[in-house]
């Protein structure tokens, strides 16, 4: 069994790079039992969304400051 440390790293990598079916299965099994890693997984997706929004708003953001 992989630890939370390894599973969370795998979750992170999966955001940038397709994982193979074994890795995806390991994540599924682990997060089914582990609320912390489940939260981590959801929150990394949330942070990606937040960063994209922040990026899209860059112009107004910097515009206001100057």
């Amino acid at each position: 069994m992989r630890s939370c440390r390894e599973i969370s790293a795998l979750v992170s990598r999966g955001l940038d790079n397709p994982l193979d079916w074994r890795e995806r299965l390991e994540i599924r099994l682990h997060t089914a039992m582990c609320p912390s890693c489940r939260n981590f997984q959801r929150q990394t997706q949330f942070m990606r969304k937040a960063a994209r929004r922040f990026g899209a708003d860059l112009e107004t953001r910097f515009g206001k400051k100057s």
Partner: peptide, 20 residues
Amino acid sequence: AFFMSNGHWHSGPSAWNDPE
């Protein structure tokens, strides 16, 4: 800083209510 030596979270991510 985030994990203990056995690979478990120190204090794991808690649930966020309706983050969006």
